[in-house]
Design a protein around this nucleic acid. Structure first.
Lengths: 191, 191
DNA sequence: TCCTTTATAACACGGCCGTGCGATAATCGG
DNA sequence: CCGATTATCGCACGGCCGTGTTATAAAGGA
């Protein structure tokens, strides 16, 4: 057997290069060449792990979902339900540098997926994951409410989190202001 | 004097071609050539009215802002404050085909502006306009609240509207569901 | 009528893109 | 040691891009 490398590990490394290019120059500057240069590999080597640009982008986006869900499932329940909900949602919002990067990538893909059916599948995964998370959280926040009320509250919570995140990404809110408004919303949901 | 055309009118016509390209193929497919083909003019003619691609994109985006603000200022006050707030906000949300187009363009530019300082200026105009609108609305909804409470409610309303709009654009909510959640949120703001 | 100004067209250049392809290096079973 | 397999490299092709330049048509004032 010849020299063999861990394909998944290498793909994760290359996805990291995609993230750096996106956060530095924007998603429009992501190309096989720029990512190859950013990663330090040749474009031919890059093509061994990602046959097309779309495949590269889709993997880089799914990797964000993987990381966020890993962080969320690693969180141990502690504190009141409200505190727990807050901690979980903050894992998805651009409150620090690392999460800012993840959120900006997610947002960039969301916009990209509006016009590209190939990326819309990944986009859909992320939206559904976030939506189900919100529904689970609302069930804990409002255990005595009707399913319709829970679903409505979950949808509004989901929209609020995404809206606040977008405003932080656009520099229109500071992370602290967004967290404060998340807290304010949570108190209106479950006093 | 030679043959003369109304430059502003022609620019608006060309911005329409930009919109059609964006809604059909996504903002990534907008180029001087594709817009020229969509509009029926030559790329040389296009360049008479927009020297660069960035200028074309920025104008097309500002045109959305112009149209939405024109519709909003044309609205005559009627009904309760809650009904008026609802009517104003619905002008900015993707509740029908025309508004869906406008919202998807705004959203595409929002994502584009994250990595492009030249477009960030237009993006900022839109965000500030929307933010000031929400602050005015909250002042009417909560006339007796403190300025801090009004500002907080305005920020949450702004985030809620944008979050719901994004979810509609992504196909994750229907327009009717988004409107229902907007109404639900408004009742929690001002019972 | 002609001339100046504007509008429109058409093309050329250099650059970046995705991607296909062949050459070379590295590695391990035989 | 050798050959088979994998990894890596670098180039080349065609295509689309933005943009600059030049030529042609149109149109109204002199």
């Amino acid at each position: 057997m010849p020299k063999v490398v861990d394909h998944e590990e290498r793909r994760r490394e290359l996805a990291g290069a995609v993230w750096r290019v996106i956060t530095r120059d924007g998603v429009a500057h992501v190309s096989m060449r720029t990512v190859a240069a950013e990663s330090g590999w040749s474009s031919g080597a890059l093509r061994h792990y990602f046959a097309t640009r779309d495949e590269l982008l889709a993997f880089a986006c799914e990797q964000v979902l993987t990381r966020v869900t890993a962080r969320i499932t690693a969180l141990r329940p502690q504190g009141t339900p409200q505190e727990m909900v807050r901690a979980l949602l903050l894992e998805t919002m651009p409150v620090d540098s690392e999460r800012h990067t993840e959120a900006s990538i997610t947002f960039a893909f969301l916009a990209l997926g509006l016009g590209d059916p190939a990326l819309a599948a990944v986009q859909r995964k992320i939206l559904i994951g976030m939506s189900e998370l919100c529904q689970n959280l609302t069930r804990h926040l409002l255990p005595d409410a009707s399913p319709q009320q829970q679903l409505s509250a979950a949808r509004r919570l989901n929209a609020m989190v995404d809206g606040l995140s977008v405003h932080v990404l656009a520099g229109h809110l500071t992370p602290a202001e967004a967290v404060a408004e998340l807290d304010a919303h949570l108190t209106t949901v479950s006093p």
